[in-house]
């Protein structure tokens, strides 16, 4: 889904990011609600080019960071600080697939009523059982079993991510498909539970070695 390319308020060049004009180096006035995809110059879609995201985050930081405005007038200093707050929020939200899915769903479902607490059938019980199993594993020092569980959780997370891709594509063509939106909400909720479990497995980084 493409959005209308905004123009710079000072020199009217097409903006890459809502925050700043790379042509004339001007800060842009900020609307009350800012679209995080526009901040990062990305089309509104679940699949993103993470290299592009990384690159623009760095380019914008190098222009806008308050460290470069330490000796600037107070108003400019504040502007740079606010810009960085927004930039960090956009970057953190969009680079994480669960947060990105949540934000995108929020954008797409804005005026529609979704049940925000749905889960796949039997999923809650399954999560409860896995949490209990994890409790036991954490007390048992069974590293092999922990690695297996960690891998299982990663796989399930990847599966959900694949579903996100196809579901968001469907929504792109038929934005009013409530059933698919609700399905997205269900998967998103499930993904949050998986995350919670993954976070409890310690030293994940080392286990993968």
């Amino acid at each position: 889904m493409a959005f209308e390319q905004p123009a710079c308020q000072t020199c009217e060049s097409t903006l890459i990011s809502r925050l700043f004009c790379f042509s004339c180096n001007a800060f842009q006035p900020l609307p009350r609600e800012i679209d995080l995809f526009e901040v990062m110059g990305l089309p509104i879609a679940f699949e993103i080019d993470s290299e592009e995201l990384e690159e623009l985050y760095q380019r914008l930081s190098l222009e806008l960071h308050p460290d470069f405005f330490e000796t600037a007038p107070e108003a400019e200093k504040r502007l740079s600080e606010t810009a960085l707050v927004i930039l960090n929020r956009a970057y953190n939200t969009l680079r994480d697939s669960t947060l990105r899915a949540g934000y995108l769903l929020f954008l797409l479902a804005k005026d529609k009523k979704l049940d925000e607490r749905t889960l796949p059938v039997g999923f809650l019980q399954q999560m409860f059982n896995m949490q209990e199993a994890l409790d036991e594993l954490l007390n048992s020092d069974d590293t092999a079993a922990l690695i297996r569980m960690s891998k299982d959780l990663q796989d399930r997370h990847k599966k959900i991510e694949t579903s996100f891709v196809s579901l968001f594509k469907i929504i792109e063509d038929s934005p009013e498909d409530l059933e698919k939106l609700q399905q997205l909400q269900t998967y998103l909720n499930a993904d949050r539970y998986l995350r919670r479990l993954v976070d409890r497995i310690p030293e994940n980084g080392l286990l993968q070695n």
Partner: peptide, 13 residues
């Protein structure tokens, strides 16, 4: 050090 690697989601390599 182990903790920080976990936080950073990085392996030693």
């Amino acid at each position: 050090c182990r903790h920080v690697l976990h936080e950073a989601k990085l392996t030693l390599k």
